[in-house]
Write a protein that binds this DNA or RNA. Structure first.
Lengths: 188, 188
DNA sequence: AGCTATCTATCTACTGATAGGTAGACATAT
DNA sequence: ATATGTCTACCTATCAGTAGATAGATAGCT
């Protein structure tokens, strides 16, 4: 679970790999393309990440850790509303910055086709996101209900991202955020 | 828009291609694999579908037409509830049968990476699904509200599918369907 | 004769991966 | 101080495998 300490070059490779994987999935990256993008040879990428599976795993793990760090502690004294707002803005930012879907919306869809280790990291991402959201609800809600609401929120956001990317506008994401906020308010 | 009439062999190729694309996306199919699966040589697959783009386009178009045909006329005299129930069951069936995500949940995520023609078909799928659902709501709801609700429902279902596949259980889909049904009832 | 559906054979381009080499930084031991 | 060993971060060169695509031949049907 601890943050790995990557060398500057390795980090650069992970950056490029993440960008590409978010647009086209695990197969959208190749050692040669990554190497060219960061100015080395493909063998050097293998030096940092022996096999492609290692690279994929590292990209997803780093992504998960970064998102969770940005969200902060779900049990701290911020209001539930402000936590949810932050959650929504993380999704919106991901879409607008990268012009691409959440890394795990992409990889989640192709989970049946991924190397086992990579798929496990993806699953971990989703359970972490649902867990965070569920914990945020615990201030005001019973555990079972919190968990169901959390799962629904993460699902909806992921789906809205896919629709937004596929249709080329972020209207779906905004619409879903509005309706989710309404729904949550009604349920509390 | 008209149903194309594919030869038996072409249909067989489309079947296999769809199954694979639903698990791993557009790049998960290869002419050689498809050929082997249906018992011909790769050159023969090129005979039916000259380029890979043609094949992808055909798979998505056929998928869309099949789903819409299964849903029927959204403006007929069935109740709204029965139409939504049918919509939900179509998603559940897709997940349980194929052990894979909706074709367009997969392709939608990688839309930025697809050949233009294929991406256009995917977009058409989503707008058709939202359109169908929106039309179903028109019996009881104003157009603007109907459209927003419809978009949210399709988004949520797509996202729940992704989570279900990624976590290996259909709990997310069931949960989302329950909460959506609740939400819709509250909104009417 | 012409059409459909298939074949064989081949092309170029790219994939992940490995073997083996090199230049420089750093630490230790003599 | 200097020689020795080890580590990092790259390199060149190469491999077998697979990708999509094409040319040209063949057999059967209408």
């Amino acid at each position: 679970m601890a943050q790995k300490n990557y060398s500057p070059k390795a980090s650069e490779i992970l950056d490029v790999a993440e960008t590409h994987m978010r647009k086209g999935g695990f197969d959208a990256i190749s050692f040669r393309d990554l190497a060219t993008a960061v100015g080395v040879k493909s063998a050097s990428v293998h030096y940092h990440f022996p096999a492609k599976t290692d690279l994929g795993q590292a990209v997803v793990a780093r992504y998960r850790e970064r998102i969770l760090a940005a969200l902060g502690d779900p049990t701290d004294k911020r209001t539930l509303a402000s936590k949810l707002k932050l959650l929504f803005s993380v999704y919106t930012a991901a879409l607008e910055q990268g012009d691409s879907v959440c890394l795990c919306a992409q990889l989640g869809a192709e989970a049946r086709y991924l190397p086992e280790d990579v798929a496990a990291e993806v699953e971990l991402f989703f359970s972490a996101m649902v867990g965070w959201t569920s914990d945020a609800f615990l201030q005001q809600t019973a555990p079972t209900k919190a968990n169901k609401l959390a799962a629904h929120i993460i699902s909806s956001l992921q789906g809205a991202m896919v629709l937004s990317v596929a249709t080329g506008s972020n209207l779906h994401l905004k619409n879903t955020q509005n309706l989710l906020a309404e729904f949550v308010e009604a349920k509390l």
